[in-house]
Design a protein around this nucleic acid. Structure first.
Ligand SMILES: [Zn+2]
Ligand SMILES: [Zn+2]
Ligand SMILES: [Zn+2]
Ligand SMILES: [Zn+2]
Lengths: 132, 132
DNA sequence: AACGTTATGTAATAATATAACATTTATAAG
DNA sequence: CTTATAAATGTTATATTATTACATAACGTT
């Protein structure tokens, strides 16, 4: 919330669009929607997206090549993300479950590798879609 | 292992290539490598990849747009996958940790959504890269 | 003002993936 | 063995996603 002030012009335009959409948006759909505001090229969009991801204002849904506003106000830096994705309506929401994040942040296996980041995507049918 | 017999010609060529590579491979790199075997078009590669993913012989590393042979012999169907990815050398390995998979397979949050599938990607530096 | 850093603009192109359609091969039933 | 059905293949074109390269402008600090 507090970081919004630091956003540059393009970053703000693009963040506001994604945030207001309430769901995941794809880069070229973003591009289409901001052309009236003077953002004309893919690279302008991708640069803003990169920065917004870096500072944790948005996250990339890797399996969908889409970007969603962070729904977890405490998520300043994107290094531990989890999402639930409906395979029917493509609704996505960010999971904020402290037990889960604690479990995954502390996870280590026998490889001796220390993990600094993770991304988890759960798939299934949302309530609405299940009841159809 | 036992399912290899059922693979079609293209599926077998492509699976063997990925499997032998020992790491993740990208679709167009696969295409380049199998052109001498008569597979000439991207679609031929993607169709085989789709099928191989579907039957769990390979998995897609979503954050890398790459495909890796299943390293877990019991993983017949890809519905619960976890990987460790080195952000320096891009080495990828499949994590098979029964506690982790049990935890995630049984995970449920307050959304009331029942998850049938998940994919988890951990990032960090592997041993080799850490010691540099 | 001068400097280094971050952001922007623009054009071209690379990399990833799918649509559409025709044909062939495998599997199984009758 | 023939017919039906599903699965796989071949081929061309195209859609979608993302980056390279280079020039310019704005910002923050001293
Ligand atoms: Zn978040
Ligand atoms: Zn749904
Ligand atoms: Zn596997
Ligand atoms: Zn490494």
């Amino acid at each position: 919330m507090q970081k919004e002030l630091n956003l540059s012009k393009n970053q703000k335009i693009i963040f506001d669009l994604i945030d207001k959409s309430g769901g995941p948006m794809k880069a070229y759909s973003i591009l289409f929607n901001v052309q009236k505001k003077g953002i004309k090229a893919p690279l302008q969009v991708y640069r803003a997206l990169d920065k917004l991801v870096e500072i944790g204002k948005i996250h990339k849904i890797e399996s969908r090549n889409a970007f969603i506003a962070c729904q977890n106000s405490s998520c300043q830096v994107s290094k531990a993300t989890a999402f639930s994705i409906c395979e029917s309506c493509e609704n996505v929401s960010e999971i904020s479950n402290s037990k889960l994040s604690k479990y995954l942040s502390n996870f280590s296996d026998d490889s001796g590798m220390k993990y600094s980041k993770y991304n988890l995507e759960f798939f299934g049918l949302c309530k609405k879609c299940k009841s159809k």
